[in-house]
Simulated scan of single mutants.
Amino acid sequence: AAVEAFIDHGVDVILFVGGDGTATDVATAVTAHDASVPVLGVPAGVKVYSAVFAVQPAAAGRVAATFEDTTTREVSDIDEGAYRDGEVQTTLRGVVATPVTEGADALQPAKQAYAGTTGALAAGVADSVRDGVTYVLGPGGTLAEVADALGVSGSPLGVDVYRDGALVVRDGSASEITAALGTDNVVYVSPIGGQGFVFGRGNDQISPAIIDRSEVRVVASPQKLDQTGVLRVDTGSEDTDASLRGWQRVRTGRFEKRLVNVV
């Protein structure tokens, strides 16, 4: 009803806040009314994989205020059932016009899936585990392989906490993860393929407070890094984002690592 009202009033752009579910609702309504009004997402949901989102809220504001042209972008969502089984299956939910502006790339690309094994990478992480250290394992297929290498059943869509050979939290909330932290903590995350986000997309349970108390380690296959380029962070805390930016050593194999810039 809100989108219909916007269309009836002839707005220049529909700016929405949320994730892929909200993007799907907006795109469905725009398409149903055969409207050409551009749509732009402010990233604020659990799943933010569609290509209609700006890379950060401030970037969405800049685009909305200055755009003079539009491009066609896809709204997509993942099949959560398949993801829990370790498969990334993206479903196209709609195609809409999205505003674009000159200068630095302010819109994120769509999530991409990459073939290839990360077994050696997962084995390398398992080899590095130390007693007494608390490990926070982010979501995604790469970290699911790490959990398998550690001999535990992780939650592909959630965040787990591992210590001394066992899961102490499975699919935990921010408060549950915080309560499980010790004096020596390590957070393992893997970037979203194609987008490069290591924080702020699909892993908001790993709050800035958790990040600030932990050592952050990034893992990714070489193929994913080749296609992703820079890494991105959007934790919601300017100070935490600033502490994460710069060159990050990313594990790509059992022994191999690569320096990648975090912006």
Rank of each mutant, 00 (worst) to 15 (best):
T66F: 08
F67K: 03
F67N: 07
F67C: 08
E68F: 05
E68S: 14
E68L: 08
D69S: 15
D69C: 06
T70F: 07
T72H: 11
T72Y: 10
R73C: 07
E74D: 14
E74Y: 10
V75T: 11
S76C: 10
S76A: 15
S76T: 12
S76N: 09
I78G: 05
I78C: 08
D79H: 12
D79Q: 06
E80A: 12
Y83M: 09
Y83W: 14
R84C: 10
D85I: 07
D85Y: 06
G86D: 07
E87D: 14
E87Q: 14
Q89R: 15
Q89D: 13
Q89N: 12
T90H: 07
L92G: 11
L92Q: 13
R93M: 14
R93D: 11
R93G: 07
R93T: 09
R93K: 15
V95C: 07
V96G: 01
V96E: 01
V96Q: 01
V96I: 11
V96C: 07
V96H: 03
A97V: 06
T98S: 09
P99G: 08
V100N: 00
V100G: 05
T101A: 15
T101E: 13
E102W: 09
E102F: 10
E102I: 07
E102N: 12
G103Y: 08
G103H: 08
A104F: 09
A104D: 12
A104C: 05
D105F: 04
D105I: 08
L107E: 03
L107R: 03
L107N: 03
Q108I: 08
Q108N: 06
Q108A: 15
K111S: 09
K111H: 13
Q112F: 09
Q112D: 12
Q112V: 11
A113R: 12
Y114R: 08
Y114M: 09
A115E: 14
G116F: 08
T118F: 02
T118I: 12
T118L: 01
G119C: 07
A120D: 15
L121G: 00
L121Y: 00
A122P: 01
A122Q: 02
A123E: 10
V125M: 05
A126V: 01
A126I: 02
A126Q: 04
D127M: 01
D127E: 15
D127V: 01
S128G: 13
V129T: 10
V129D: 02
R130N: 13
R130V: 12
G132H: 11
G132L: 06
V133H: 03
V133D: 02
T134Q: 04
T134F: 02
V136Q: 00
L137K: 01
L137G: 01
G138V: 00
P139M: 05
G140L: 00
G140A: 02
L143V: 11
E145Q: 14
E145D: 15
V146M: 05
V146C: 04
A147W: 02
A147F: 04
D148S: 14
L150C: 07
L150H: 01
G151D: 08
G151I: 05
G151V: 06
V152H: 03
S153P: 01
